[in-house]
Design a binder for these strands. Structure first.
Length: 257
DNA sequence: ATGCCTCAGCTCCTGAGA
């Protein structure tokens, strides 16, 4: 396994042709998808099988929904966070080749102080408690997805205007740092990157054209995998499509293992 | 301050996203 990627597609029903196109141009070994917005019975298994991918999905009507596509079979598939009761389909994890791979759609949180923000905070704590045990069992681990959190001002197009707004609050960033403290590393920042690099741009107000975005889609790798990371990039190409997702894929490349 | 756009759904408006 050498390349893994994550992409919030904002409806797999709408974006399936773009995902298939992207995979033919970028034949990654694992692709984690978020915001399928479909139930499992609608999941396009055949389309992925026909281009050589195994597929595991955890769907939900209207909102959320995640999937893992992989060249090698996914083993020991787990849905959501064990020990954290959640009515939403946000996490799918599996062993692929010699690593534990987790694809996650973190809660948005809507607004600091709201019920949804409190849910985001408790979800983040639930994730951390599970991950601590998971890292003990599986030191070679990748956690990737739509985190809905920026690390710092470098991930925000206007840090002054967006200070303390959702995705940029100290509470969210504290939880993200607490995840890192378990022994995880932001693959993207292991390398020099262009300033103003983002993974999401609002559909409104020509935000993509003006590069008014946020970096909220991340790939975290464990201590054991960190030395193997060769590159990490955000692929803005699909954001230029007709009817694009608002998110761009993030890709990490590991040394052959 | 609000909507700016996009998507799903008990669809011609609303809720949610980020």
């Amino acid at each position: 396994m050498t390349k893994l990627a994550t992409w919030n597609v904002n409806s797999l029903t709408v974006r399936l042709p773009q995902v298939l196109d992207w995979l033919s141009a970028n034949p990654v070994d694992v692709l984690a998808l978020q915001e399928l917005k479909m139930t499992d019975d609608k999941f396009p298994f055949d389309a992925f099988h026909s281009i050589g991918y195994h597929a595991q999905c955890f769907g939900q009507k209207t909102y959320n929904g995640v999937a893992l596509l992989s060249r090698s079979p996914a083993r020991h598939v787990v849905r959501n966070i064990p020990g954290f009761a959640d009515g939403m389909a946000r996490v799918i994890s599996a062993e692929v080749d010699e690593a534990r791979v987790i694809g996650a759609y973190f809660p948005n949180g809507q607004e600091p102080g709201s019920d949804k923000f409190e849910y985001k905070m408790s979800w983040l704590k639930g994730l951390r408690i599970w991950l601590r045990a998971e890292l003990d069992k599986c030191p070679r681990l990748v956690l990737m997805g739509d985190y809905n959190i920026t690390f710092d001002d470098a991930d925000v197009w206007d840090p002054v205007a967006l200070k303390d707004t959702i995705h940029c609050t100290e509470e969210e960033r504290y939880q993200l740092r607490a995840l890192m403290a378990l022994g995880l590393h932001d693959a993207y920042r292991l390398f020099p990157q262009a300033p103003k690099s983002y993974s999401w741009w609002d559909y409104r107000d020509f935000a993509f054209r003006r590069n008014r975005g946020l970096r909220i889609d991340h790939i975290l790798v464990s201590d054991a995998l960190k030395p193997l990371v060769k590159s990490c990039l955000i692929d803005k190409t699909p954001r230029k499509n007709e009817r694009p997702s608002d998110h761009a894929p993030v890709v990490v490349e590991l040394l052959q293992t």
